[in-house]
Design a protein around this nucleic acid. Sequence first.
DNA 1: TATGAATGAGAGTTCATTCAT
DNA 2: AATGAATGAACTCTCATTCAT
Lengths: 216, 216, 216, 216
Amino acid sequence: MRKDAARNRELLIDAAREVFASRGIEASLDEIAKHAGLGVGTAYRHFYNKHELVAACAQQALDRVVEIAEQALRVEDPWQAIGGFFEGVLRLQAESRGLREVFLGDYDPDEVGQPRERLVAALSLLLARGQRAGVVREDAEPSDLGFLVLMLCSVTDVAGTIAPDMWQRYLPMVLDGLRPGGADFGGRALSAEEMADAIAAHKKELIRATHIPRPE
Amino acid sequence: MRKDAARNRELLIDAAREVFASRGIEASLDEIAKHAGLGVGTAYRHFYNKHELVAACAQQALDRVVEIAEQALRVEDPWQAIGGFFEGVLRLQAESRGLREVFLGDYDPDEVGQPRERLVAALSLLLARGQRAGVVREDAEPSDLGFLVLMLCSVTDVAGTIAPDMWQRYLPMVLDGLRPGGADFGGRALSAEEMADAIAAHKKELIRATHIPRPE
Amino acid sequence: MRKDAARNRELLIDAAREVFASRGIEASLDEIAKHAGLGVGTAYRHFYNKHELVAACAQQALDRVVEIAEQALRVEDPWQAIGGFFEGVLRLQAESRGLREVFLGDYDPDEVGQPRERLVAALSLLLARGQRAGVVREDAEPSDLGFLVLMLCSVTDVAGTIAPDMWQRYLPMVLDGLRPGGADFGGRALSAEEMADAIAAHKKELIRATHIPRPE
Amino acid sequence: MRKDAARNRELLIDAAREVFASRGIEASLDEIAKHAGLGVGTAYRHFYNKHELVAACAQQALDRVVEIAEQALRVEDPWQAIGGFFEGVLRLQAESRGLREVFLGDYDPDEVGQPRERLVAALSLLLARGQRAGVVREDAEPSDLGFLVLMLCSVTDVAGTIAPDMWQRYLPMVLDGLRPGGADFGGRALSAEEMADAIAAHKKELIRATHIPRPE
DNA sequence: TATGAATGAGAGTTCATTCAT
DNA sequence: AATGAATGAACTCTCATTCAT
């Protein structure tokens, strides 16, 4: 029984991801449930409201990014590890359009705590290793990795079906910017907390697409 | 009366920009009209449907970007001209959040022909001047300017209210990438037509939020 | 000035008839006014509301039927006069579809008094002449002429574009029914007043399509 | 639940018939749903749009007419069978005003195929029996039965509440017209297909009141 | 527990009518 | 007197959410 419930939850999240990708985030729950081969009612047994389903998708996306970051940590060469992280995320983004939208809007910072911390930890390590090895500039910070990968994501997002690999054109430039001797940064970086705040703020915008917060 | 009508059209577009910025693109026409101090019916006298109002906002945004590009052309120094263009666009984006969303979705390529051509023309000139002066790498293309500015826009978009000037941190890196001797590009650039296509395709995604094309 | 006003009134009624015929009675006043080459405001100078414009069309239709009846009276032969009346009305109906709808809904018995009386008078005379000449059965009444012509109108109405002359198939039968020795009538006839009442009642149904009676 | 759903479907059709009868076909779905004691949403669960609800009413009306025709076939005497058919339909029409409007506009010839065929079959049989027995003229055709009953319906339609039985006055005349030796027909009859076409064309007029076809 | 029917608020859109010019 | 812009109530339809089965 428990197994079935868990299975249905997965089915719903997967269906949601697919339907959101093709129909946009304003797809109806009816359609998602049907796509999952379940009734709407079942969706409401697993998620308090549409918003929570979206959040679960975001969670899943975040999980995959964390995985990519942790995999990168297993790469011996510190510089290749960083490159691998970028490529991994971008490839994910290219295949599941809208990931960025969903990823950024991770919807409930309070509930996503742990994976986020794991992400920050992984990125910090990735960066520190590079800096220790002298292949990454000293003034780079973990949040820079976040913003730089985001920048490339937005290229993919717009280039879309026409040229889903467009990010590859700008990747060397971005990586080059991380090297020691790269152009001076034009301002200070965001701390991990600030970045979390920024994302949380940005999420509000996206959340409006799903409106209706918890009651009470 | 004509004057009042024109005034109301402006009022509506302004209201739409503001409401879209704060409530997202799925804000209702009722709300926009109210914000403009007008009745819904009036909105429909001026715009065939919601989609057309969004398109008008996009048009306006595009116009402003074109202006910025043309202003940049009047700057003597070719390199400063390019930097000025980047700064101008980013500053605009920072002040009117959501510009990117609306700008990219300029909604009817067929109807926006002329401004877009003016934009491409201006960017091409900007680039050519830089290349002739030897301050811009030879293999850069107009579409690169577009994507690079977009990348910085996305930073602003996410950093939002927390750090609306975050783009400044990455601007030097991006500009550095345009210099001769910058890191090799990782793939070919998009031609102006391809970029237009990509944007047009991307727009479809956004258009789903507004759907309902002209009838007949 | 007076001339212009009268001219515009005619223009509007004509436009209304045409637009109602092609677009149905739910056509908008805007469209009718545009078709007449005038502004909506002008329509409201001439007609208190949409309902009154419809009523004016009905009035005009009634006038034309009265004319047909009075023309028939000028035909020497009493039987041919009656046949001529039927043919005249049906031909009118065939060419301007929807006449029946508009005609029946003559909308304000109080205001249409005179033409209706002229119609009843003409029909009574038509009938009496036939009865006096012995070519029409004695128990026929003026309202019978009305219903019989209506029956044929409904055939035209449905046969529509496919076979606008379908009424001709059943005309002999109907006329035969008016002859002395025709099949016995199955019930009593309506008096002129009753028929007026029936039409007035029926009109209410049609009026609902135009709703909104005078205020107060 | 299935039972409840079916019940609600019936409730909606019944409510629609009643509301259409009293308020006209342009009654709002809100009103119909309320009359049925249901929410609008429920109406839309059962019928894709207003048009389909009207079509369902038409379907029901057609079904009842088919029943009447098939009942008539069970009457021994061929002539009385025909008279019974006329009386049955007219009585139905008298009690549910607007039947004619809704009946004629049976809205989707493709989907109503079977009942229509059953009707044509029944009418053909009715007629053939009469002709074989020598009580119906040889040149009468099934479509004649349709038009003749329609003619009487229009009388009822107009006479309305004032004299709902007015059709009885003209029934003998009409039946007499079907007898051998009745007045010559004034033109050819419509074939079953042509009549279907005429009705389908007429329906377009009515459909305008309901517009908006299925999407895609 | 799963289902899908029911609900109703809310969105986009139209149009009779009013009124400033 | 004529115009057409402005208004807002009303209509059709959608969809997140609830609830009977």
